[in-house]
């Protein structure tokens, strides 16, 4: 149980550059009336970012070619159906974990 000084400094630096983008919007947005176009743009950010994060989970990069990890895609389908029809976050997460385990068992 020890903390190396240079490791600590790296962690501290990383903490700082993570804290700033997290907190700055909460400081900037006060006393600032957002233009309609900007708030519309921001309203599309969640859909885009979540899609990008999902796609990122099934893309595998080998050299300069991008391949699809079909086991992940196969596990996404039951999770997607659970999300659409049950509208329940916890249930979707559990269905996803079980689907991935089942897919890996047979793959």
């Amino acid at each position: 149980m020890s903390v190396n000084l240079s490791v600590f400094l790296v962690i501290f630096g990383c903490a700082l550059v993570t804290f700033l983008p997290r907190v700055l919007p909460f400081i900037l947005v006060r006393n600032y009336k957002m233009p309609a176009a900007l708030s519309k743009w921001l309203s599309f950010i969640p859909v885009c970012i979540f899609t990008a994060l999902i796609v990122n989970s099934f893309l595998v990069k080998e050299g300069n070619t991008v391949n699809v990890d079909w086991t992940v895609v196969a596990a996404i389908i039951p999770a997607l159906l659970a999300a659409i029809y049950k509208k329940n976050l916890s249930l979707t997460v559990i269905v996803g974990i079980i689907s991935m385990a089942v897919v890996r068992f047979f793959a």
Binding site: I54, V72, I76, T92, M100
Partner: peptide
């Protein structure tokens, strides 16, 4: 990933 799927939906 499952969580992101649910959040997207």
């Amino acid at each position: 990933t499952a969580m992101f799927v649910a959040l997207l939906v």
